[in-house]
Design a protein around this nucleic acid. Sequence first.
DNA 1: TTCCGACAGTGGGGTCGCAAT
DNA 2: ATTGCGACCCCACTATCGGAA
Length: 512
Amino acid sequence: MLLTRLARVSREVAATSARSRKIALLAELFRDADADDVPIVIPYLAGRLPQGRLGIGWKILSRPVPPASEPSLTVREVDARLTELGAVTGTGSQAERARLMGELMAAATEDEQRFLFGLISGEVRQGALDAVAVEGLAEATGAPGADVRRAVMLAGSLQTVAQALLSHGPEALDGFRLTVGRPVLPMLAHTASSVSEAVEKLGACAVEEKLDGIRVQLHRDGDDVRIYTRTLDDITDRLPELTSMARELAHTRFILDGEVIALDENGRPRSFQETAGRVGSRVDVATAAKTVPVSPVFFDALSVDGQDLLDLPFTERHAELARLVPEPMRVRRTLVDGPADLPAAERFLADTLDRGHEGVVVKALDAPYSAGRRGASWLKVKPVHTLDLVVLAAEWGHGRRTGKLSNLHLGARNPDGSFAMLGKTFKGMTDAMLAWQTERLQELAVEDNGYVVTVRPELVVEIAYDGLQKSTRYPAGVTLRFARVVRYREDKPPAEADTVGTLLAAHPEVAR
DNA sequence: TTCCGACAGTGGGGTCGCAAT
DNA sequence: ATTGCGACCCCACTATCGGAA
């Protein structure tokens, strides 16, 4: 199949907002693909590269290359070239990869170049990624959508399922079962604004500590132990202490879901930056493990002794977990019958925060494990802080925000009346706010370099954020975590905006 | 030879708008 | 009304390459 066909379909998919139409377009293309094209066409149209990392980013991609006049590239040729490119390592590899990329781009038409750019930079912007491709695949093969979705969650990969489905038909889906050693997409949580809201929604529930660490899925089959991240990357080699712990458990075949976190000598959590840095270390794992040991904390069991627990209610899965894993390695929790028990839930949240953790996750006791979904039966609750900050500048948006000032640069007041930038945010604004701030900020503009519009620091905006973290990037040495806009405060002059001093005082553990 | 800046890739994420249910 | 998905981009970290010191 020719790449130009994919480029055209991708453009058509982007042009329609109806999901049903997107699905139909993808299905038509999947039907026409040769068996050998399938493992490439499917991920391409789901906006993903089968190769994963290529070592090619925005920098290299934005070098202009004159396009070919006639389409000639086949998807298989593109895939082969990218595989070759990704395999280049060692001295001079960066330049060699850039050269190969240039060659590929030169063989592509303008349309194809645009498609490749989006694919490799990870910004396809066609309004259809994995989930829509799954529906398209279902439509193309006549298999029920729910069955295909479930198979993808269990296989952890769309390609695998697509190949089986297209070569053997819908019966092939039966082959995708929960298997120890093969990672499953983890269940995710929604956010609730308070414990009472969460408990009212869920009724009988467990309130569990939310730890600010790295999600892990632990598989053990005899002596073989594997550890996967939220995106199913294999990080077994980076967490040797977890492997030995898993081998010491009495049972020999299981899949557990949990979190790893670095704790200090008093058992209090170290900063997320320290945990993430430790888990991200690959080169000298032994030293990293010694200086920043991590502790596992499990909260769910997906499989025990060959039995698939996914469809069991949480209560029963947790009973299995408790049988498997000793108490110190299970997440702290409390059970709540419903809204009448609210005070106990609130108390648990307060205690959790006192112990230095992020918040709680409230989980319905009767819910199954919805692999790969942001299920409504898990609700996280974290305290939210707010600040009144001053807009220092704004960046021009992309995609559906093209032509709008989007990403705000936020500043807190210094004692001398100047402002210290604390970070940026593009979150929390409605289309109406986006339109309004584009106008208003242009009135305040002192400079526009085509990318950033610098403004007079006169507009105050209320910002919500989750916490403070250390920063080497910003002048105050700190930055906001997960900052989002709440509302504009035109009633408030910048001289009354929050100061760096009050911010640091509110987070003594970070300010140190 | 060693150091350091730039880039790529991965971890953590919240909120909005729209289509579909 | 509610749910699911994609889009919008953030910051910190590590690893790697390639040029400067």
